[in-house]
């Protein structure tokens, strides 16, 4: 019996590939100039207005403690959850790939508890971002 799969938007951020469920990935956008919000945590780079909505931009590298990130991100993947929208910075967007479901989180707690995988893809191993959980995590931290 074949494992259940789902289409994911796969993008690169730094060295690693991340995947977002295609139905949650609203759009791939080019990032405009961001408005900084004083008092916000470091991984929240700022906000930008998109279609009448204020979208916070999350630097995945900073969030995951993988580096200082870029000064000016060009691309971001706009993720829409029931409680709000998020933009995840992307170095490069690979496209839509079908990835298996039912993967385990990379860690028991912390931010990595909202990363599932790794899942195999033609571009390499992909960590699937569990968006709702990440959103809630960010709301807690913020």
């Amino acid at each position: 019996m074949a494992e259940p799969t789902k289409g994911h938007l796969v993008f690169a951020c730094g060295e690693s590939l991340y995947g977002v469920a295609a139905d949650l990935a609203a759009e791939v956008v080019t990032l405009p100039a961001l408005t900084r919000v004083p008092g916000a945590p470091g991984h929240l780079l700022g906000v930008f207005a998109h279609r009448g909505e204020v979208v916070p931009v999350v630097d995945l590298l900073k969030l995951l403690g993988l580096g200082q990130g870029l000064e000016a991100w060009k691309r971001a993947v706009l993720v829409r959850t029931p409680k709000g929208a998020l933009a995840l910075t992307a170095t490069r967007v690979a496209g839509v790939s079908v990835l298996p479901l039912g993967l385990s989180p990379l860690a028991a707690d912390g931010v990595r508890a909202h990363l599932l995988g790794p899942a195999r893809s033609p571009g390499g191993e992909v960590a699937i971002v569990e968006c709702q959980g990440l959103f809630e995590h960010l709301s807690r931290v913020g």
């Binding site: 919000v37 204020v54 959103f135 913020g142």
Partner: peptide, 28 residues
Amino acid sequence: RLPVPLALASVTGGALLGFVQVAGVLWP
């Protein structure tokens, strides 16, 4: 007045009321 995203709701002790957009630029 644009609403505060949930991720930023608690910054600055809740002093952030929202955002206004003037000439394409977003102001907290």
